[in-house]
Nucleic acid binder design. Sequence first.
DNA 1: TTGTACGCGTTATCAT
DNA 2: ATGATAACGCGTACAA
Lengths: 351, 351
Amino acid sequence: MADGPQGQAAPPTLHDVAREAGVSVATASRALNGSARNVRAENVARVRAAAQRLGYRPHLSAQAIARGSTRTVALVVRDVADPYFSAIAAGVIEEAEAAGLIVTMAVAGGSPERELQIVRTLRGTRPRVVIVTGSRIDGAGTRDALVEELEAYRTAGGRAVMISQRDLPYPTVTIDNAGGAAELARALLGAGYRRFAVLHAPAALRTSRERHEGFLAGLAGSGVPEPIAVETDFTRDGGYAAARRLAERGIGDVDAVFAVNDVMAIGAMTGLREAGVRPGPDVGVAGFDDIAPAVDVVPALTSVAVPLREAGAAAVRLALPDGDTGCEAGAREAGVRLPARVILRASTPPR
Amino acid sequence: MADGPQGQAAPPTLHDVAREAGVSVATASRALNGSARNVRAENVARVRAAAQRLGYRPHLSAQAIARGSTRTVALVVRDVADPYFSAIAAGVIEEAEAAGLIVTMAVAGGSPERELQIVRTLRGTRPRVVIVTGSRIDGAGTRDALVEELEAYRTAGGRAVMISQRDLPYPTVTIDNAGGAAELARALLGAGYRRFAVLHAPAALRTSRERHEGFLAGLAGSGVPEPIAVETDFTRDGGYAAARRLAERGIGDVDAVFAVNDVMAIGAMTGLREAGVRPGPDVGVAGFDDIAPAVDVVPALTSVAVPLREAGAAAVRLALPDGDTGCEAGAREAGVRLPARVILRASTPPR
DNA sequence: TTGTACGCGTTATCAT
DNA sequence: ATGATAACGCGTACAA
């Protein structure tokens, strides 16, 4: 109620509970967090009541030390505010909580050094599982250091799992970027599109490269001209800027624009419109990810749906022992590849 | 490199490091995590080298026990995947990491019982700070239990901070929903709008109610007719459905629709359009939150920007001792109110 | 400056 | 079924 600055009273410990209940710490421990069936029912009740009365909560750190293992999973993402990562995080948290695990989360912000630093720190918490997500930048010098760190972690009995980082020697959940992009390309061909532009990020960004290359692969053999490639940022503003550049340079020779993610595509639609080009009627636009707003922009955006939440959940399943969760043993070391699904909408009307 | 299933080797402890360096544990402890200036430089180097060689990381749980305090902040949100909460989470994580704190995160999913359960569990980690965010549902029976739990936590020296839950007796970061909505109302009046409809969630949802009431307050004294109130879900689909209902019932008597959040507003725009009503030219549309896609829908959505990321950061500043961060001592117990800012866009053209 | 020894809150072993 | 007591990994008096 009041402020009571005397508040430094230490939280009740198992000793306090035991004393209050009139039993030994051992019994109290068994009654609360151990095999309660080895203790007389009456004492179980006594202890539970005492714990309740005192507002006792077991000290997880102490348990961790005594048991020699924690019940936490450490998750490192590039940016929580990004819907891509927050969807993954939601899946991780959901599945982890279902398994009785607590999630600790850190943000690398796209910096490999920061990522390494974070994994170091997080390792100090001795998590059961470490999940690293975020497209790896090829050639970043910290790769070896990161592997070394994770290797030490694994040697100590930890489980490391990657999401969409197939170049690290750990079980990986990956989205079928290339396959989805290829399927999209074929769908657009089927809708009558012939002359493409691709808005992509620098090739060092693996996700962008996979989608770009997959798109080209899907076009292969169709005889359409080589798409125009526009390199830009992997962001909404990147898509916007690239579209404006494209439009100003003259867009008469392209009838569809593929942006390697939805926020880029949505930015591109605005860019095109401001340049006097109508997305849909004048030029088809397609993205990748199928984020929520895709259905509410005008025209609704053709995209490739990726099961992000499921990817997060799959990652923790991959990490946990077979018993805890449905997960084929084969996938345990190899990893899992999740399919991406094309969704045609009004932004690419049949031509 | 290889799989090496012999991996159960226990991680190196401080003892191992000490032995490797040829000093006592005490010296090793001081050299690594204590006051290193009380140990001979040569030994500091020895110990550091040994730690490096062994890949030693201090066991945070052990430190927590020995020191009697952790360096973690516990964050509970309703849904990470929701951009509203992920933005707050980003702010919390950023500020926490700046202060050298690790964030553990849990998802309550809108269930007060689950929220209570989570706070209980999280308290077991003995966090320095607990941050609870998410609009409280009025009248939920678990309120007292939650307060009791948090009170026990505070008595034990912990700091509890709320984000947008002003009915709990703890320092709170709140967004000026009412003020922002009132300002929006006045701005719309200034733009020539006179007959309003409000799309809102059930009044038990405090955020919705505050924005709704604030909007009405902003209208007060202007002499315009009482707005039509349409109750629906606090979601995109809720906004969509409400707009369709509105349109089908005949929308001739309203010239602007205010939805109490942006995803509702964006859904409403789609709903109106499908009913043959053009957002902007036919009827003004405004939302609240200023989420990223607001600028890319057509017409661009008038909204009220709320500093969510800043709210998260402010929450951890509120919780930390004065020294650690800039934060007026006065705010320490009272809390902080962040302003919301109206942003007029094409969805509410002057009339 | 360094080392010994105790304590932190819990679990687990071993008697009883 | 229960109770001492020894770990667990680390910090830190206290003594040297």
